[in-house]
């Protein structure tokens, strides 16, 4: 078996909130304390991506999918858990040890406006990861030639290399972001909602480009998105997240044909579509996502789940392998109890 490009085990990320130490100082029962509020963004996520594979993370805002992506990219420090890139555990590498890893792992960002430094020329933006790798060993001229070649690959010309980001449209900026990620020829690209800020016609262009690049460079993607139709188009397998938990992972066809978790079903039926034939009777879910500052005990989805029962409040369901190869975290699909009752 080949080593997965990315393997994540028990990833946890919690953010302390509430400001600096002076802001949090409180007197309580005669003691001076600085209590810390904790935002539990990711609560034990496992995933693995094989070379050339595209895995998508879907879920609604606040479900932790972007945090997973950015923690793997080591923009954030993981609170606990293991992140293996190409077999190497990088979860606690320092800045210097992390630098060689960045050659294998790059990222494409959501906002085509904020993800490019407005004061840098496009050619400098594109070549920045490469320059960080090579240090002073490459001449400026050689770097610039590489930048122009990269830009050409994503559909921009040499003359545009000397411009600043504000002279480009959203779609073109996203192409620049993709060229930047490609500059070190990574094995894995983490794409955080790369098309959600773009118009539909441009979105299709970028998705096509990403698929072409995957074939050309043998890339793997971790593709974060809230848009199920985009995910269906690009992903080989999909993980559905809710409140920092992975509630279901399955191959694309399994997930879209036989969704198991009630939340997955709700997501699928809520997504608007132009295909009339696809409009399903809806799983009515009400209300909104609870705060990650105070997670509900038991199953995190029970507060909105139409099928919740006693056990859901008492016990948090674990992600369990199903007979068809998918995994679901729901008491309705508890394999041990199924086995017992059988």
């Amino acid at each position: 078996m080949t080593t997965p490009v990315l393997e994540v085990r028990g990833l946890v990320k919690a953010f302390p909130v509430g400001g600096g130490i002076f802001e949090r100082l409180r007197f309580r029962k005669g003691q001076l304390l600085a209590p810390q509020k904790i935002l539990r963004a990711v609560n034990g996520v496992n995933l693995s991506i094989a070379p050339g594979e595209v895995m998508a993370l879907v879920g609604e805002s606040g479900c932790g999918k972007s945090t997973v992506a950015k923690t793997i990219a080591r923009i954030y420090e993981p609170t606990a858990g293991e992140i293996r890139i190409d077999g190497q555990d990088v979860s606690h590498l320092g800045f210097r040890e992390m630098r060689p890893v960045r050659r294998k792992l790059q990222m494409i960002f959501q906002d085509p406006y904020a993800s490019l430094d407005p004061r840098q020329r496009v050619k400098d933006i594109v070549i920045e990861p490469r320059r960080a790798q090579t240090g002073r060993t490459m001449s400026r001229k050689a770097l610039e030639e590489e930048a122009v070649a990269l830009l050409a690959r994503v559909g921009l010309n040499a003359e545009q290399a000397n411009r600043y980001p504000h002279q480009f449209s959203g779609g073109q900026r996203q192409r620049i972001g993709i060229a930047r990620a490609l500059s070190v020829r990574p094995k894995l690209i983490i794409a955080d909602e790369p098309v959600s800020a773009l118009d539909v016609s441009i979105q299709a262009q970028i998705l096509n480009l990403m698929m072409d690049l995957r074939d050309e460079f043998g890339l793997s993607y971790l593709f974060v998105s809230h848009d199920l139709s985009v995910v269906h188009h690009i992903a080989d397998k999909i993980g559905v997240m809710y409140l920092g938990f992975m509630v279901e992972t399955a191959s694309r066809d399994q997930l879209f044909n036989q969704p198991k978790h009630p939340y997955t079903k709700a997501l699928l039926s809520a997504a608007p579509t132009v295909d009339k034939a696809l409009r399903k009777p809806e799983i009515e879910i009400t209300g909104e996502v609870p705060s990650a500052l105070r997670l509900p005990h038991g199953c995190c989805f029970r507060t909105r789940c139409p099928l919740a029962f006693d056990r859901c409040a008492a016990e948090r369901p674990a992600l369990q392998a199903q007979p068809d190869g998918s995994s679901v975290a729901c008491h309705l699909h508890d394999q041990t109890s199924v086995a017992r009752s059988a």
Partner: peptide, 24 residues
């Protein structure tokens, strides 16, 4: 037509989406 084709369909999955070339 182009706008509609740009939306990835869950019913039929093609390797490439039919895209509208260029920008506004």
């Amino acid at each position: 037509r182009g706008l509609l084709d740009s939306i990835p369909r869950i019913t039929d999955r093609q390797h490439r989406l039919r895209q509208i070339p260029g920008t506004v």
